[in-house]
Computed example of a mutant assay.
Amino acid sequence: MVALGGTISVPGGARGARLSGAEITAAVPGLAELGVALDVRDVHAVPSGSLTFGQVLDVVELASRAVADGADGVVVTQGTDTLEETAFLADLVWPHEAPFVLTGAMRQPAMAGADGPANVLAAVRVATAPEARGAGALVVLNDEVHAARWVRKTHSTNPATFGSPSAGPLGHVVEGRVRMLLAAPQHEPLKAGPDRERLEATRVALHVVTLDDDGAQLQGLETTHRGLVVAGFGVGHVPGALAPRLGALAEHMPVVLTSRTGSGSVLRHTYHAPGSETDLRRRGLIDGGFLDPFKARVLLRLLLASGAGRDAIAEAFAVRG
């Protein structure tokens, strides 16, 4: 178990105080009765909004060594703000059958109805469950098991915030039993360790399209960034006036088209007006499929940092989108 910080570790009271992983697990009723030997590590005790790609990949490497040394599974506790992104990043590079389970909490330990203990207990159950092997990175909260590929944080405060709008949960924890009802998407893991300096230098922008958007914010982007993810309207549309600017950027860098709606896929060839998905694909934009903008940015940055060219990037999105 790797503890990264976040709400699950904030005891309340003293500013800056954090619970250690051992303190978090000590407060979980029923955990000792599971008979699971936990090796608890404290790493990067920061709010999840301050985590970096490099730090997440460090955790994946630590977890990979633990599995190679005989661990049956891995649990990572962190803040929920970036959980959907860190989980997907881990899922892209996780090479083992052993479950890689991420969890957290929406309520601090001292609050009424704190959800951290129940989430940790469920996460440990999933990490040691034979039914969860081979499922890659999983997010477990509120007794639901979600694939990193689909999961989203959908509410700012509700403990039931995590859902998978396009697919639903893969499974549930019921009376202490892990019930997997659906299979997680299976893909070959990407290269786990791009050069960290190259990764740090690989900047990928995310542009959310809005009403009457003229693309002024994108001016000069080709000189500062190596890639762009566009969160378009609905099925992948933008204002007609913005389309030429995106096409010009696509001549210099990979530009991936996604939907800002939060679920569903962008289309490929249903609409044909200027700024439609057909028009944007003709201008060189890459189809992001079902990937939401945040996950598309994670995938694009990792691919670019690993040296992938445009064709390889388009193929990766065709497979994973």
Score class of each variant (00 low, 15 high):
residue 112 A to D: 13
residue 113 G to D: 08
residue 75 V to F: 08
residue 210 T to G: 10
residue 287 D to C: 14
residue 226 R to E: 13
residue 246 L to C: 04
residue 288 G to T: 08
residue 74 V to Y: 00
residue 2 V to L: 15
residue 273 A to F: 12
residue 122 A to M: 00
residue 181 L to P: 01
residue 103 T to E: 11
residue 101 V to I: 13
residue 18 R to D: 00
residue 96 H to M: 10
residue 39 D to I: 03
residue 235 V to H: 00
residue 126 V to S: 06
residue 224 T to L: 12
residue 145 V to T: 08
residue 2 V to G: 03
residue 239 P to L: 04
residue 56 V to T: 15
residue 170 L to Y: 10
residue 21 G to E: 14
residue 81 D to K: 08
residue 2 V to M: 01
residue 10 V to Y: 07
residue 124 V to K: 02
residue 295 K to L: 07
residue 67 V to N: 09
residue 232 G to K: 05
residue 109 P to L: 12
residue 202 T to Q: 06
residue 149 R to M: 02
residue 216 A to L: 15
residue 265 S to P: 04
residue 15 R to E: 14
residue 78 Q to K: 04
residue 80 T to I: 15
residue 61 E to R: 11
residue 193 G to V: 10
residue 276 S to R: 01
residue 276 S to H: 05
residue 205 A to M: 11
residue 80 T to L: 15
residue 147 A to L: 12
residue 100 F to K: 01
residue 153 K to E: 14
residue 87 A to G: 09
residue 9 S to F: 13
residue 12 G to D: 00
residue 126 V to W: 02
residue 284 G to Y: 05
residue 146 H to Y: 06
residue 11 P to D: 05
residue 37 A to N: 09
residue 170 L to C: 13
residue 225 H to M: 13
residue 179 R to T: 06
residue 267 L to C: 05
residue 194 P to Y: 02
residue 236 G to M: 00
residue 272 H to I: 11
residue 296 A to Q: 11
residue 11 P to G: 03
residue 295 K to H: 11
residue 24 I to R: 12
residue 296 A to I: 09
residue 29 P to Q: 09
residue 200 E to L: 15
residue 129 A to R: 04
residue 55 Q to C: 04
residue 202 T to S: 14
residue 178 V to T: 02
residue 87 A to I: 06
residue 124 V to H: 04
residue 46 V to Y: 08
residue 53 F to N: 10
residue 194 P to I: 12
residue 282 R to I: 11
residue 305 A to L: 13
residue 17 A to C: 08
residue 252 H to D: 05
residue 71 A to F: 06
residue 148 A to R: 00
residue 16 G to P: 02
residue 185 P to E: 05
residue 60 V to W: 01
residue 157 T to D: 11
residue 252 H to P: 03
residue 181 L to G: 02
residue 169 P to V: 04
residue 223 T to G: 09
residue 127 A to Q: 10
residue 106 M to G: 05
residue 21 G to I: 15
residue 24 I to P: 04
residue 92 L to N: 06
residue 294 F to C: 03
residue 228 L to C: 08
residue 67 V to I: 11
residue 194 P to D: 11
residue 118 A to E: 09
residue 138 L to F: 12
residue 154 T to P: 00
residue 110 A to V: 09
residue 204 V to S: 02
residue 89 L to A: 07
residue 161 T to P: 00
residue 271 Y to T: 07
residue 64 S to L: 03
residue 317 F to E: 12
residue 43 V to A: 14
residue 114 A to K: 06
residue 308 A to D: 14
residue 137 A to M: 03
residue 39 D to G: 09
residue 42 D to V: 04
residue 28 V to A: 07
residue 192 A to V: 08
residue 280 L to H: 06
residue 122 A to E: 01
residue 1 M to R: 07
residue 200 E to S: 13
residue 66 A to W: 03
residue 263 S to V: 04
residue 156 S to Y: 11
residue 261 T to Y: 03
residue 308 A to Y: 01
residue 132 A to C: 04
residue 96 H to E: 09
residue 20 S to D: 11
residue 126 V to H: 02
residue 266 V to A: 02
residue 236 G to A: 01
residue 185 P to S: 06
residue 172 H to T: 15
residue 170 L to Q: 05
residue 319 V to T: 15
residue 37 A to D: 13
residue 151 V to S: 11
residue 84 E to F: 01
residue 21 G to L: 13
residue 71 A to S: 14
residue 169 P to G: 00
residue 1 M to E: 09
residue 31 L to C: 12
residue 11 P to R: 00
residue 182 L to Q: 11
residue 13 G to R: 05
residue 48 S to L: 01
residue 173 V to D: 05
residue 133 R to D: 07
residue 234 G to W: 00
